[in-house]
Amino acid sequence: MACDNKLKKEMFEELKKYISEIEEKNGALISVLHKGQEIFGYLPQEVQEFIAKEMNIPIAKVYGVVSFYHFFSMKPKGKHPISVCMGTACYVRGAEKVLNSVKNYLGIDVGETTEDGLFSIDALRCVGACGLAPVVLIGKDVYGKEEVKDMKKILEKYRKEASK
């Protein structure tokens, strides 16, 4: 437990350093939230309160931004976050079937994380890659069209990597 607290303290110190190096804090909230999520993996209440204090802004403003933008998460995400685009082009080309196959294979729903912490699922409005529709993002990896027909095979690749 002491190791976890030490790590957490270092994470807060890293975020504090990042915030302190911003010359004009007015308008920098989104970049600070991105950095916080990069460091902690998500933005729990404790991190939001820290950011509000360090930036001298109301916690309600921080929470408002975190809860408004889909790319911020208040829950821990899996090591490999899966985002299925549900925009019009993707939806018309079978995104719902792809999403259902991922949910069924992993045994979780949108917004949930697998018990082993490897995967979490989100449904996005549009990722801006309509030519590849339907599109699935796993972390920073982009899969489209033909690849997403066999999501089980793709997900097994990530499971094998994690077991090494």
Rank of each mutant, 00 (worst) to 15 (best):
E38W: 05
E38Q: 12
I39R: 03
F40L: 06
Y42D: 06
Y42E: 06
L43Q: 04
L43G: 05
P44Q: 04
P44C: 05
Q45N: 13
Q45S: 14
E46V: 01
E46I: 00
E46P: 04
Q48D: 07
E49I: 11
E49Y: 12
I51W: 02
I51N: 04
A52D: 07
A52T: 07
K53N: 08
E54K: 12
E54S: 11
E54W: 09
M55D: 04
M55F: 05
M55R: 05
M55L: 11
N56I: 09
N56P: 05
N56C: 08
N56R: 13
N56H: 10
N56W: 05
I57Y: 06
P58M: 10
A60N: 09
K61M: 13
K61E: 15
K61G: 04
Y63K: 14
G64W: 02
G64S: 05
V65R: 10
V66F: 00
V66W: 00
V66M: 01
V66S: 03
V66R: 01
S67T: 15
F68Q: 14
Y69H: 14
H70Y: 11
H70Q: 14
H70V: 10
F71G: 03
F71M: 10
F72W: 09
F72D: 12
S73F: 10
K75A: 14
P76F: 05
K77R: 15
K77G: 06
G78W: 03
G78S: 00
G78Q: 02
G78R: 00
K79P: 12
H80S: 03
I82A: 01
I82H: 00
I82K: 01
S83N: 09
S83M: 10
